[in-house]
Amino acid sequence: MDVMQMVKDIFEKYNFQKIDFFVIIGNPIEQQYDRLIQKYGGRIVGTRKRHVMLPDGKLYDEKMYEILQEDYLNKRYGKDTG
């Protein structure tokens, strides 16, 4: 619920136009992020291979997401702002 409120505040209260965020592929939160962007009209922008080194010394792939304000509003309220 906190994440949903944060997304709402970012777009509706602070009028941001876009949110970008990343996850290390394989992190348990990745599935929740995938559902979040589906719910709010976001998309997976791409993956960066062997991009992040964690404390274990291994390189991991990173997935990038984005949600645009107009897509969020359209998905949440059925408003087409474009």
Rank of each mutant, 00 (worst) to 15 (best):
F11N: 05
F11Q: 01
F11K: 07
E12V: 12
E12H: 10
K13M: 08
K13Y: 05
K13N: 14
K13P: 01
Y14E: 15
F16I: 03
F16M: 07
Q17I: 00
Q17T: 01
K18S: 10
K18A: 11
I19S: 11
I19C: 12
I19D: 12
I19Q: 09
I19H: 11
F21W: 13
F21H: 10
F21A: 10
F22A: 14
F22P: 04
V23C: 15
I24D: 03
I24T: 15
I25H: 02
I25S: 05
G26E: 13
G26P: 05
G26A: 14
N27K: 12
N27V: 09
N27L: 10
P28W: 02
I29E: 01
E30K: 08
Q31H: 13
Q31F: 07
Q31E: 14
Q32A: 09
Q32I: 04
Q32W: 06
Q32G: 07
Q32N: 08
Y33M: 14
Y33W: 11
D34A: 04
D34S: 07
R35P: 08
L36Q: 06
L36W: 03
I37T: 05
I37W: 01
I37R: 03
K39R: 10
Y40P: 00
Y40W: 00
Y40K: 03
G41P: 00
G42P: 01
G42A: 00
G42V: 02
G42I: 00
R43M: 12
I44L: 06
I44K: 08
I44R: 06
V45W: 10
V45A: 08
V45E: 15
G46H: 01
G46D: 01
G46P: 03
T47V: 10
T47A: 04
T47R: 10
R48P: 08
R48N: 08
R48I: 13
K49A: 12
K49V: 10
K49D: 12
R50I: 06
R50H: 15
H51K: 06
H51L: 00
V52F: 14
V52S: 07
M53N: 03
M53R: 08
L54Q: 11
L54D: 07
L54A: 09
P55I: 02
P55C: 00
D56R: 00
G57Y: 01
K58M: 11
L59F: 07
L59E: 02
L59W: 07
L59G: 02
L59A: 05
Y60H: 11
Y60W: 08
D61L: 03
E62G: 02
K63L: 04
M64V: 01
M64W: 06
M64D: 02
M64G: 06
M64T: 01
M64L: 04
Y65R: 02
Y65F: 12
E66Q: 04
E66W: 01
